[in-house]
Design a protein around this nucleic acid. Sequence first.
DNA 1: ACCTGAACACCGTTCAAGT
DNA 2: ACCTGAACACCGTTCAAGT
Lengths: 263, 263
Amino acid sequence: MLKFLCELASKDPVYPLQNRISRKQQAIADREQELLGIAFELVKQEGFANLTMERLTKLSPYSKGTLYNHFCSKEDVIVALCNAAMREELVLYRKARDFQGNSREKALAMHFAYLLASERNPVLFNCVLTAKSPFVQEKASQARTLMQQDLEKEITLLIDSLLAQAVEQQELRCDTESSMELMAFANWAMAFGGIALLLNARASHSISRLGGMNPFLFNLNTLLDGMQWQPLSADFDYQASWQRVAHEVFAAEMAELPASLQL
Amino acid sequence: MLKFLCELASKDPVYPLQNRISRKQQAIADREQELLGIAFELVKQEGFANLTMERLTKLSPYSKGTLYNHFCSKEDVIVALCNAAMREELVLYRKARDFQGNSREKALAMHFAYLLASERNPVLFNCVLTAKSPFVQEKASQARTLMQQDLEKEITLLIDSLLAQAVEQQELRCDTESSMELMAFANWAMAFGGIALLLNARASHSISRLGGMNPFLFNLNTLLDGMQWQPLSADFDYQASWQRVAHEVFAAEMAELPASLQL
DNA sequence: ACCTGAACACCGTTCAAGT
DNA sequence: ACCTGAACACCGTTCAAGT
């Protein structure tokens, strides 16, 4: 359940790796992962309102004081969870990038990874937004906030290099320097908006009426067509690419998902 | 500040209008508006974490028990605020629809209205998302939840009729029945995603690097081009339309905005 | 019938006392 | 040096007592 937290434990920069990490430091890092794992279970089961320092203390073998030794506030826990989620996303993005296909198919694979991450863990997806809001941000520790910015930069870098590759292969045109950044943002906005609405507003009229249709591929095809990213959706079977991504890249991750969710 | 709450007071269906509303019912409806106004100020100043039943009680002339007479829970207050925000949005959408121009320009005006609503009141914009999350929804009163669905339907209707009009005028093609609903959703997702990210993640790398550029028009032009909504952005000056909307439709609302925000 | 506010269980954060 | 848990101020919700 929380293996993603464990395997990333030693990477947390709050306790930076040294050539030889002291036993004590390692113990502290381990405990932090243990605490984050419990916090993760709390939000997973009942949403964010269910995460309280009180409950976190009671479910852990430690005292409140010790919790506050790791996290300067409740918000700090939230940002820490969000960072773990982003690290997990990064792993998926790297897999997506290696998909065999043209540049637009690779972009599709990246979006698939984003959607997959949100389906695997809906609450953490929302976490990423709330964690960025100024009210949360200002109560979190600086170390954790900086870490978040680093992770974000790393993701941005991946996207940028994909766009650059597409331009190089002449499948995408990019008139000015700045329009590349605008294109990156447009992709993020479209994907984020679609997922956030689907996750949170499933009951809403204009979403429930979509019935069994999968709006993601439609959204993406429309946006990428608007960017004139070749080949256009009229000339290529991106539905097939979407299926290929599911089977060739993310078969393992898909298998973990509840059967009710077909991407 | 909270005039939008007042003018809509009598419309709240929790206390439905009758041919002759009793004096007592009117008093109750008034008090509810008063309470919502205070709640609004609380979230406006310091975000949602600042809204507590405790503070709401203290800032009002009433007791806790009376508050719970109006709102069955804290979440119920949030949904009530969200509904007020949606009513305000509706007013803007109606103004946008009457913009003189081709169908795609009208769509632009609708998006402008959405953006304007979010700039006028960032916290309530977020409110609309959190208010739809299942955890909040299940703690709110049914009356308020139903009201929310009605408001949503009304907004959807406006969008749908604009799309239908565009198809009728042959500026937009719509192959199947369902693709209209997909197009409506794509517009919502793009607009929502862009605004939510801009509001909450201004500090994030891939947003801060956009600098002074306004990504909204880019996002919209790209999406609507992808939908093949005529005339395409290459053949029409939508930048000019955007300015026209600001001046011709929303001059009054723009004037209220802090000068730092140029749409 | 409606309003009040005391009461209860819970929460976030701190810090003196302990090891 | 680090851990503990009592203490404090605050919060959401309820309900017996009042009018």
